[in-house]
Nucleic acid binder design. Sequence first.
DNA 1: TATTGTTATACTCTATAACTATA
DNA 2: TATAGTTATAGAGTATAACAATA
Lengths: 154, 154
Amino acid sequence: MVTSPETCAQEVLEVVPVVMRIIRGKMRQHRAADLSVPQFRTLAFIDRNAEASLSDVAEHIGLTLPSMSKIVDGLVVRKLVTRETHPDDRRRMILTLTRSGQTALETSRTATWACLASMLAPLTDGERTVIVKAMDSLRPVFTVRLESSLKTAK
Amino acid sequence: MVTSPETCAQEVLEVVPVVMRIIRGKMRQHRAADLSVPQFRTLAFIDRNAEASLSDVAEHIGLTLPSMSKIVDGLVVRKLVTRETHPDDRRRMILTLTRSGQTALETSRTATWACLASMLAPLTDGERTVIVKAMDSLRPVFTVRLESSLKTAK
DNA sequence: TATTGTTATACTCTATAACTATA
DNA sequence: TATAGTTATAGAGTATAACAATA
């Protein structure tokens, strides 16, 4: 079976926005955490990358610095993230999750997983396997490369 | 191979937002059309469903009536859509694409397809086939009926 | 001079509540 | 009364441009 890039693109363009809308809704629905998708992704990145700078996060999430700055503002106000200046380079910020931030991330992640999982449960194992394989193919294609800014920063 | 709903959900939750962000960027990038994703989806729906009402569009895109109304406002101002009252029920709107609207839709669709296709081109045929199959599985799962939530909201 | 980040400003997207017009 | 849609209002997400602080 041959699948042209065009056909594949068409399918992706049709389905991904629909899935995205559901994910967004699910996340907002969990009042305990109440995180938007960008907020969730920001917390997740900071969790995975200790002492990340604002530029690191912005680059990975794919936002401009001002946009990222504003999102982090909100997270700091909600006390989910702390923002300190780096002792060795006072231009840089060191972003860290607070205890609350870790909890919010975990709560949101678990609840959203559970919701999505229940939606995916009616599918067959085979279908889910295909979906996972598809995601594994798509991930590197659409992931912004961090050209070592993180590593050099550390 | 067994893939649990949880594993599948995790993968979807991780990859879909990344793909979505690229799609959004690509769409905005084509200055000729310059459509946001919701605008694009709205035009596509009106194109597929002649004489759609505002409620029809809102329900299928998954937005509230005021949100949809505002999006359509913008499209009407840009002369991509016409908004007329239905002769048989003057509460209803009849939404139709203008010539410009058809052109904008086609331009945006083609350009975005081409961009995505070029990103998907390095994958193997097999990988693309898997992606298409995955999208076909995901589509019905996430194409959710919103009537219930809309009605209870009233 | 280059880098990191913030502020100012201006959009779009989105929701809820209150309203109008029509049925 | 019920339905279709708009207006009012508010807040988040996003971008560009201009700026400040630091290196």
